[in-house]
C-alpha cells in the first residue's frame, strides 16, 4: 500500500463485508431453508440458522424431481459439450492462426459471427433444425437436382433424416456450435511467438507434431479455463433443453427440474424441499468454479482482448 490511511482501510473492509453479505445471502438462505422442517420454514419471520433436516429434504427433493437420472443427463451434456468444444475449437483455431490459406479470414469470420448471437436469441430457428438436422443437406441435394438424378439412376429416393429431439446429440451439438472456444484459443495462439514456430520448423517438425508437442502442452491453462466456462454454461442451460426434450423422463436435465420443485400456488409451501433441491443442483458448477478459479478467471479475461 502506498500510504497508511486507517479510515479508508476501515471503509474498505466495511464495503467488502457488505458485499460479502450481499453475495452470500441467497446461498445462505438456500442452505438454511433447505435444512429446516416444513414447520420451521413456514415461520414468519424465518429463523436464519440451519436446522438438522437437510439430508431428508434432499432425499425428498431427489425423489420428487427424479434427480438421479437427471443428474446423469446433466453430467453427460456438460461433459459432452465441454470435451466437444475443447477439441473442435483447438483444431479450428489452429487452422485459423497457423495456416496460410486463401479463405482463412472468411473462415474466421464465419465462426466468429456466431459469438454475436447467443442461442436464446435465435431459439426459434435453431429449434426448426431439431426435427431433422440433415435438412440443409437435403435441400442442397434437392436444389441442385442431385436427388432426382440419383432417383433416376438407382430408383431410390435419397432422404436424409436425423432427428435430434430427445437425444444427447440434440442436447449437445447446438451448444458446441458456437465460437467461444475458438475465439479463446485464437487469442492465446496469437501470443505464441513466431520464433517458436520457426524453431520447431528448424528442428524438423511439421504442423501436426508442432500442434501436439508444443501447442497443446502450452495451452493447458487455457484449456482448463475453457473447460470451466463450458462446464458451467452447459450445466446451467435451461431454454434449449426445455425445447429439445419432450421426453423429460429420459432426457431431462436437473436445471429443467427446478420449476417442478417449486410449491404449487395452493399446495403445501414446502420450500425446504425446494431449496434442498436447488442446493444440490447449483452445487456442481459452483464447486468447479471455486476449485478452478485461478485458471478460469485468466481464461475469461483473455476473451476480452
Amino acid at each position: 500500500m502506498i500510504e497508511r490511511s486507517p479510515i479508508f482501510d476501515f471503509i474498505t473492509y466495511a464495503t467488502m463485508i457488505l458485499g460479502l453479505v450481499l453475495v452470500l445471502v441467497p446461498f445462505w438462505v438456500t442452505i438454511v431453508a433447505g435444512s429446516q422442517s416444513l414447520q420451521e420454514v413456514s415461520q414468519v419471520p424465518l429463523n436464519l440458522w440451519p436446522s438438522g433436516h437437510l439430508l431428508e429434504n434432499i432425499q425428498t427433493a431427489w425423489a420428487r424431481a427424479d434427480l438421479g437420472p437427471k443428474m446423469i443427463n446433466s453430467l453427460i451434456v456438460a461433459v459432452g459439450v465441454t470435451t466437444g468444444k475443447i477439441v473442435l475449437a483447438a483444431l479450428s483455431a489452429f487452422a485459423i492462426v497457423f495456416f496460410n490459406f486463401k479463405a482463412r479470414m472468411l473462415c474466421f469470420w464465419l465462426i466468429f459471427i456466431t459469438l454475436m448471437l447467443p442461442l436464446e436469441v435465435r431459439i426459434v430457428p435453431t429449434y426448426s433444425i431439431a426435427a431433422n438436422a440433415l435438412l440443409p443437406f437435403q435441400t442442397l441435394l434437392d436444389t441442385f437436382g442431385i436427388t432426382s438424378l440419383l432417383e433416376m439412376m438407382s430408383g431410390v429416393r435419397v432422404t436424409l433424416e436425423w432427428n435430434l429431439l430427445n437425444s444427447y446429440t440434440g442436447l449437445i451439438l447446438p451448444l458446441v456450435a458456437t465460437a467461444t472456444g475458438t475465439f479463446l484459443y485464437r487469442q492465446f495462439f496469437m501470443t505464441i511467438p513466431d520464433e517458436l514456430v520457426e524453431a520447431s520448423k528448424m528442428d524438423g517438425s511439421g504442423p501436426i507434431r508442432f500442434f501436439f508437442e508444443v501447442l497443446l502442452p502450452l495451452s493447458r491453462t487455457n484449456m482448463l479455463a475453457l473447460a470451466t466456462i463450458m462446464f458451467v454454461s452447459s450445466w446451467n442451460q435451461y431454454l434449449w433443453p426445455l425445447l429439445i426434450t419432450t421426453d423429460r423422463a429420459n432426457f431431462g436435465t436437473v436445471v429443467m427440474q427446478l420449476k417442478a420443485l417449486i410449491p404449487a400456488q395452493n399446495g403445501t409451501p414446502d420450500w425446504n424441499v425446494t431449496m434442498a433441491g436447488a442446493l444440490i443442483i447449483m452445487l456442481p458448477p459452483l464447486l468447479v468454479v471455486a476449485l478452478m478459479q485461478r485458471w478460469f478467471v485468466r481464461g475469461l479475461i483473455s476473451r476480452d482482448k
Partner: peptide, 15 residues
C-alpha cells in the same frame, strides 16, 4: 541442415 539461434531464444517453455 541449418541450425539457428533466435533473438528471443525461442525455447519451448513447457520442456
Amino acid at each position: 541442415g541449418c541450425a539457428m539461434v533466435f533473438q528471443n531464444y525461442a525455447l519451448y517453455p513447457h520442456m
